[in-house]
């Protein structure tokens, strides 16, 4: 199952990016989590027909990715991978929403198309920001930062385990699927029936593994509480980073900079 293995390798690449060294990588994870959160909330809170005011927000992912030396095409490709899901969510907007919002010559643009485009841009921005957060911080550090910011430990630990065993489960799925493929001699095998049984086996194996992991945890003195080894330092540069980007996001959210700029430009060059 090449696609599963390729997906795992791709995911590991994102994780490996977090080992790079840059001013952004060196910041405390909490600062990056906070800024990303403010950014996502600012972007997501715009109205459904908002389009132009979203565009200035691209400054955040572009600036951070450039400062952190993240490969831009890899990030764009990864972010675009989710576009089919977004299109599926918004595909009926143009069908149901016929309110004409703009008219360019003879062409009328309905609210449905605008809301679909807005949804698409917002998801690109938010998902891109999340990828950049993981690429500059690492998933583990993000989870630990969430916990230190007050997210209940059980959620943070669940996320950590999910991430840790995603690779193991993906490997297992890849192996089981390859075994099925090799014995179906290029045909459909037993079709959906064999997939059902394969999924069932994976679930049962996951269950058994969970029991073994729990046993291993108990064997090392686990009594229901995770003791984190505290690291990281929230200093001046972190504070500047959080305050600076939060102010920018909030002002972009509050003031219509696109229209102001447009008016200014059209005022100067009539």
């Amino acid at each position: 199952m090449i696609s599963i293995n390729a997906a795992v390798i791709d995911l590991k690449r994102l994780e490996l990016l977090a080992d790079l060294d840059s001013p952004i990588h060196r910041l405390d994870a909490r600062a990056k989590v906070l800024v990303t959160l403010v950014f996502i909330i600012s972007v997501a809170s715009f109205g459904r027909y908002e389009l132009a005011r979203l565009l200035p927000f691209f400054i955040f992912p572009v600036a951070i990715a450039a400062l952190a030396n993240l490969p831009p095409f890899y990030l764009i490709r990864k972010t675009l991978l989710i576009s089919p899901f977004i299109l599926m969510i918004g595909m009926f907007n143009p069908v149901f929403d016929h309110t004409v919002l703009y008219q360019i010559g003879q062409t009328e643009i309905s609210g449905g198309w605008i809301s679909l485009a807005s949804l698409f841009i917002r998801s690109l921005l938010t998902v891109g920001a999340a990828f950049i957060l993981v690429g500059t911080t690492g998933f583990t550090a993000v989870c630990q930062a969430l916990e230190r910011l007050g997210v209940p430990q059980i959620f943070a630990v669940q996320l950590l385990f999910l991430h840790r065993y995603l690779f193991v489960l993906a490997d297992e799925t890849g192996r089981a699927s390859r075994a099925r493929e090799l014995r179906s001699c290029g045909r459909r095998g037993l079709g959906t029936v064999s997939f059902g049984s394969l999924a069932g086996h994976l679930l049962l194996r996951t269950w058994q593994r969970a029991e073994r992991i729990h046993g291993a945890m108990l064997a090392r003195g686990f009594i229901g509480r995770f003791h984190a080894h505290r690291r990281g330092y929230f200093g001046g540069s972190e504070l500047c980073f959080v305050v600076g980007w939060s102010l920018l996001c909030l002002s972009l959210r509050t003031f219509d900079i696109t229209t102001t700029l447009g008016t200014l430009l059209t005022g100067v060059f009539p």
């Binding site: 998933f139 583990t140 989870c143 950590l160 385990f161 991430h163 840790r164 065993y165 193991v168 593994r209 073994r212 992991i213 046993g215 291993a216 945890m217 090392r220 003195g221 686990f222 009594i223 003791h227 984190a228 080894h229």
Partner: peptide
């Protein structure tokens, strides 16, 4: 199976799990 035993996100944290619980 070491995969059942190494459940923490990094080698350091995994080895530290027991001593922290102590």
């Amino acid at each position: 199976y070491p995969d059942d035993q190494l459940f923490m996100p990094s080698v350091f944290e995994d080895v530290a799990f027991g001593p922290l619980n102590l």
